[in-house]
Design a binder for these strands. Sequence first.
DNA 1: CTAGAGATATTGGGTATCCGATATATATAA
DNA 2: TTATATATATCGGATACCCAATATCTCTAG
Lengths: 110, 110
Amino acid sequence: MRGEGGDRPGEGGEDCCDMRGMLGFLILFLLSKKPMHGQELAGEIAIRKGEKKLSPGTIYPALKGLRELGFIVEERDGKTIVYSLTDKGEKALKLAKIKFIKTFFGIFPE
Amino acid sequence: MRGEGGDRPGEGGEDCCDMRGMLGFLILFLLSKKPMHGQELAGEIAIRKGEKKLSPGTIYPALKGLRELGFIVEERDGKTIVYSLTDKGEKALKLAKIKFIKTFFGIFPE
DNA sequence: CTAGAGATATTGGGTATCCGATATATATAA
DNA sequence: TTATATATATCGGATACCCAATATCTCTAG
């Protein structure tokens, strides 16, 4: 019951951070910089983390979840599907970034 | 290619980032700034995240895991138990920070 | 049309994270 | 001693994460 209607008039900052954890957050952040398709995204994450590419069983369910949340949309481009943020996704990312920065304040060297 | 040397230069750099995910990482970071006991830690995290304090079922298993990894030690002080980093924990944190910064590069505003 | 390659998607399984509830331990107050 | 408050700890369940294997889809080569 995470309907749009907002059972909570008072808040509204509730479901903005339920983006399937850190992976969803990272995906949203990367897509905000540049729309990408799944494998491209997996490659970018692999480079950042210094690990192997995420398995299809990891990346696609994550994308599906973000799509079902209304945070991203997909557009087929030949063989691939390019994902990009919706307005809702941008808004959610913005709020999540604030929270992220506050949570990990002091970790990044200045 | 970008695998920096291949898969396995022996060992040592293996368990350095397996600190039970982001919570373990955050705990290690906070303890590196100041030794604290469990509830104090939960309070600090609550402030940073802007949420309620972590449940005992979250904070204590996380601390137990870090202790079993040899990253923290505990010392009873009256009613509380104060946790602090070991040398191994400091080293692990340092490496994890590098990975964290690389993974989330660009999230923090400059 | 048929193969092959690459991208996308689902399934099944295992581990990790986290919470709510419950239980135990310690210190203080009565 | 008993009662209370706080801290620590564990248990059961829900969700997130991640992979290997498998299947489907789309384009291109032949």
